[in-house]
Nucleic acid binder design. Sequence first.
DNA 1: TGCCATTTCGA
DNA 2: CGAAATGGC
Length: 476
Amino acid sequence: MTTKSPIIVWFRQNLRLHDNPVLHAAATLGAPLVLIYIDDNTSHPWQAGEASRWWLHESLLSFESALAKKYQAPLLIYQGSPLIILQTLCQQTQAEHVFWDRCYEPYTIKRDTEIKAMLTKQNITIKSFNCALLKEPWESLNKTKQPFKVFTPFWRNLQKLPIRDILPLPKKFESLSYSSDSTIADCIPLPTIHWYEEMAKLWQPGETGAKNHLAHFLKNALNDYKTQRNRPDLKQTSRLSPHLHFGEISPVQIWHATQSCQAPQSEQTCFLSEIAWREFSYHLLYHFPDLPSSPFKAYFKDFPWKKSKTLLKQWQQGQTGYPIIDAGMRELWHTGWMHNRVRMVVASFLIKHLLQPWQEGEKWFWDTLVDADLANNAASWQWVAGSGADAAPYFRIFNPVLQGEKFDPNGDYVKKWVPEIAKLPIPYLHAPWDAPEDILTKAGVQLGKTYPLPIIEHTKARERALAAYQTIKQTP
DNA sequence: TGCCATTTCGA
DNA sequence: CGAAATGGC
């Protein structure tokens, strides 16, 4: 393709300069570029929560300044209907080409398909690029050309597929002299209450922060990733999830950087399989677009949930009386993130101990996570619920006390997020109700007053959950 | 990336 | 008698 008419490059998720196929392709063509971001958060069913919006605000600022610094190119910000904005821009700039990075959520696919049809009618050429995945969801198929429904075969297959090389950073490109009326602050305003300041100390949204996180992780944590990654009291996970969600780093960059680092191969593979879980989630969401709302295994629609707004709220607020659960839920609220092991434990607790629908947990995570991602969130909640593709078996019910003792052995994680019981000695920190009266008094804990009694008893809850499952279980 | 009751093993 | 293995949920 040769063109001298401007190319509009619409960035949606992949807010980075390096290894960005859409930017690379556009810059290579030698035409002037119009770089835009359109905020249409209010026009779809899964509006982003405030934590995620804070991250987006910061990420866009970072991207905007990187573009200005490296290429003296402005990032134009718009708010409203992408179709109308693109039509107008094409007219005003005489652009005949619109390039974008592919998105995979059902509502973005629908939106983009409509836009592509309308603009094509007006002789605008649309070109889209895979910027967010190792492989497109339709590139991974089993021997019968069907999507994978089990992770292990998906992962084995992925390891056999060629992964493209990292793209070089475009040396230069010309940008059209053009400006928009809105700024990042107009379209994605920060909340008036500065609750995000606590999060701002922990994270560095943007490409530089992502790169730093990856380098630090590969150097300091990957060597014993297999075992230490389960410890929420240590910082041994990559913490790349929000960076990946906004595309500040690509899975291709992670793939190659991991394979060329010093850590043992078994550790590399373990970490890359986690990246592959993300890939598998996108694969499932693409092929089964109902994933965010309906159980993948249809018989789960009859599950006898016992909906309770009170229980849901106690879980959300970290007031369940189980220290590891409350620590996790409070970490989420305060940092916009939760350790993966703890995510599994709190999700299992909401679904199995409290019998609340997994969709309620999914919504809460969606509203509060900085890494809120439709594919990962939906696939993971269904995985824990047992209703998903390749789900955990329903009888896998975590015991919150044992999980705490096993993965937070010194209680540092609980002490950090549940300070009101921090003075309890270790055998009782994960099960305060077992502590003798004098030990509770000495630690300044009054159960039911300064810290809740358990809102449900573990053994009974476990039996009730197994019984509930029996009512829907399919007999083969 | 489960829990738990029960059985079996070995000092 | 405690650790390890086993098997059902």
